[in-house]
Each structure stands twice: as structure tokens, then as C-alpha cells.
Amino acid sequence: MSIPAPRPPQVPKPPGTHFMVEPVRVRSVWLKVGYVVVWFLVARILLAQLISPDIPLVVYAIVGSVLDLGAIVLGARIFRSRHEDPLPPRPWWQLTGRPRAGFVIGGLISVGSLATYVSDLVNPDRVDVVLVIASLGINLAIAFAYVRSSVLLQRRTRA
């Protein structure tokens, strides 16, 4: 009969943290791309289900904006760059791990939003101009948040 090896002492968790689990962090570029593709497909499928003569276009636009904003906030919280520590939470204003990423994403959102705005104004009879302007405003605010996050990250790395 052998004597079992002694167990290492267990350090008790602080009060109120016994239900906490490790945070979910996505570091792989391919998983990030997959997240964006799945979000886009799921959001479009859900919105396609909402299109019917009984539901006003305003509801469609609001649901789409809420889905998009939720996906962006969730992505900003769980995505991490290769150079970031995965455990501590980011500051509330930080949307990307590196400044360049925020500038690129903000620029892409701006260009895409402006292109959609211009294409919608070319055919004003088939779109609601108020919704187009509201959507442009929301998208440009998101793009501004990404650019602002990158500017703050640059200041923090220089200090």
C-alpha cells in the first residue's frame, strides 16, 4: 500500500467570487472573422424574418441597430490582441488591442456607411430618408468610438 502524495494547500477564494469563472477571450484572427461572419448572417436572417407588410420599417431599423451595437460591444469585450493580457478587463473606452486596428475598423465603418448613404440617396423613392440619416449617424458614432479608442491607446503607449 502506497502513501498518496500530499495535496497542495487550497487558497480560499475571496468572498463573493466563488461563482466566478475565467473570462472568455478570443485571440485567434480566424475566430474573430468567424464571429463577424456569424453575427452578420444571424442578424440578417433575424431581420429577414421581421420583414413583413405588418411590421413598420422603423422596427426593422431599430432591431438591426440593436443587434449591430450588441455584437460590437460583445466583440470589444471578448476580443484580445496577441500582445494583451487576457485576464484583466479592458477600460470601458478601449475597443481594440492596438491603435491601428481601431483606425482601420473606424475607417471601414465610415466608408461603408457613407457609401450606403449615397446609394440610398440616389434612389430616394424606395428608402425612408429619416431612417437612412439615423443609421448614418449611428454608424458614424460607432466609427468615432473606434477612432477615439485608438487615439487614447496611442496616448497611453506614449506616456
Results as ranks from 00 to 15, higher is better:
residue 125 D to Y: 04
residue 140 L to Q: 01
residue 8 P to R: 08
residue 34 G to S: 02
residue 9 P to T: 06
residue 43 A to D: 01
residue 36 V to D: 07
residue 135 S to V: 01
residue 82 R to P: 09
residue 129 V to P: 09
residue 6 P to G: 05
residue 153 L to W: 03
residue 20 M to T: 15
residue 35 Y to M: 07
residue 14 P to R: 04
residue 35 Y to D: 05
residue 86 P to I: 08
residue 133 I to Y: 02
residue 20 M to Y: 15
residue 72 I to Y: 00
residue 9 P to A: 14
residue 144 F to C: 15
residue 65 S to P: 05
residue 151 V to E: 11
residue 80 R to G: 02
residue 118 V to C: 13
residue 8 P to L: 05
residue 85 D to L: 04
residue 94 Q to C: 12
residue 139 N to M: 14
residue 11 V to Q: 13
residue 53 P to E: 06
residue 151 V to M: 12
residue 81 S to T: 06
residue 41 L to I: 15
residue 82 R to E: 15
residue 73 V to E: 09
residue 66 V to C: 04
residue 83 H to S: 02
residue 101 A to H: 09
residue 26 V to R: 06
residue 55 I to D: 14
residue 16 G to E: 10
residue 118 V to P: 10
residue 54 D to R: 09
residue 127 V to D: 09
residue 52 S to H: 10
residue 93 W to V: 02
residue 48 A to V: 11
residue 68 D to F: 13
residue 122 V to M: 12
residue 17 T to D: 11
residue 29 V to G: 11
residue 10 Q to P: 04
residue 88 P to K: 08
residue 24 V to I: 14
residue 33 V to R: 05
residue 49 Q to K: 12
residue 39 W to T: 02
residue 139 N to R: 14
residue 79 F to A: 07
residue 93 W to P: 00
residue 145 A to R: 13
residue 106 G to A: 03
